[in-house]
Design a binder for these strands. Structure first.
Lengths: 255, 255
DNA sequence: GCGCGCGTTCGAATAGCGGGAACAAACCTT
DNA sequence: AAGGTTTGTTCCCGCTATTCGAACGCGCGC
């Protein structure tokens, strides 16, 4: 069975989102610029853009358009109503305060990891991660923790789809190596990331599982490689983290 | 001239967003449920939903669909690239730490105020406000601060459009009263909110203006009415706030 | 002051959208 | 256990709404 059925999509909707995607990547663009980019008639782009503008979805400033803050409203709404959000948020804050490092809450969606909440510790590293960031699961600690606790058939499908693209020189790109790591992660309950996602950054990640035992998300603690090492990385932080995710799972079951 | 031209919108795009709106309001819905809500044929909704799903914009769980976290990605992106965001964020954090109250950064878009960043103080009140929340400008301190510093013709158009709907018993619903308040706000440079937005909550708001003198956003400090009163509310907090917005304006001009 | 490039308008042709009916499967109810 | 109800899904036809290209008007810069 194909991942998404081969039905004819509604092409008009696709062009509308193609336009939105262009605006997202260019920050701000005019009608002609969009039309050229998408190989569409100017009049088509014009009518679409005006439709989106009348809904408030894009905003005009001068002769260029940009995406509106309605998407912020939609997006925050999506995040807030995710079952993990309410229960994970306070624990993420706690972990950040206790460890002084950057702590993230990540959920799984369509086989990718999505950062939905992050808390700063006093010595947080600054990475390219931000709320809403989507990352392939094999590329970071939280993602590997999730991946390890998904049904076997889903794991294989995800590996097929993303083909283990490298993010840094340390990213795991070998299927067998990944499979054996996932086995280890399942046994000890948490994942480690040695500069596999950002050079110079190490991390620990632990899954948050639902009642059926499948991961729905994960929490991770990340920091500079020269601080997060030795027993801190392999013992102290995992213990702290697993305590937190365990509590989260309990709260999740009773909410 | 009409606010948005009377051109025929692309109806297919409208139905796509109608579907997304239904999903946003219901948290999660099935094909038939959406079709009933919108008075559309099931086959139409089916095809649209599948199109959105194939783009990853909606996610299927069981036989219901919900909006995906792509909107979070879009939305956070929109927020982060707003000129005010980078310069205001640290100041908002500072104000929250100094005052121990809730501090918001609000921007103006299409005549409404949009909350793009909030910082908690140690004694923050909890209101219904959240990132992405859209509020009519006349209903709160930050909004009135913005409204007072917009071009006169825009002010009138906004008043026409929103008709001064009440949010609490204290919300200003009289045009003349609002106009005279706006005049006062322009003179002293900041706006006050006495339970006009949330019962039991007072607030101060000050505009952030661009080089032309028009407001592009505002910063507000909000807290319980019995704590935010007297000279604290009318002198100390405004002074603090105006110092911050002044700095923000300077940084904004040089970024 | 001329022309290039932009947003905007218009009309026409056809492709693609919307609808309804029919199918399959899952779920309750009895 | 069986039938009835409701759900997602599929198909095809007719018509409308989308698309395109060409033409217009405008402003900016060369």
């Amino acid at each position: 069975m194909a991942r998404h059925s081969d039905h004819r999509p509604v092409e008009t909707v696709e062009t509308a989102f193609d336009i939105l995607d262009v605006l997202r990547h260019t920050t701000s663009a005019g009608i002609t610029e969009i039309a050229d980019e998408l190989d569409l008639a100017k009049s088509t782009v014009y009518r679409h853009t005006k439709t989106l503008e009348s809904r408030g979805l894009v905003v005009r400033s001068g002769d260029t358009y940009r995406i509106s803050t309605w998407f912020l409203d939609y997006g925050i709404h999506v995040r807030n109503q995710h079952p993990l959000f309410d229960v994970a948020t306070p624990k993420v804050d706690e972990l950040a305060a206790e460890t002084d490092e950057k702590v993230w809450c990540v959920i799984e969606e369509d086989g990718v990891g999505v950062h939905i909440y992050g808390a700063e510790g006093r010595h947080s590293v600054r990475t390219h991660a931000r709320i809403g960031k989507r990352t392939a699961l094999h590329q970071f600690a939280a993602g590997k923790a999730i991946l390890a606790h998904l049904p076997a058939d889903r794991i294989e499908r995800i590996l097929d789809e993303y083909d283990l693209a490298a993010q840094t020189a340390q990213t795991i790109t070998d299927r067998d190596e990944l499979r054996s790591q996932l086995e280890t992660i399942r046994e000890r309950g948490y994942a480690l990331n040695y500069e596999e996602s950002v050079t110079g950054v190490h991390a620990v990640g632990a899954p948050v599982k639902d009642e059926s035992g499948d991961a729905i998300g994960a929490i991770s603690i990340a920091g500079p490689a020269n601080r997060l090492r030795g027993e801190l990385l392999t013992d102290d932080l995992p213990t702290l983290l697993l305590g937190a995710t365990n509590e989260i799972e309990i709260n999740l079951a009773h909410s």
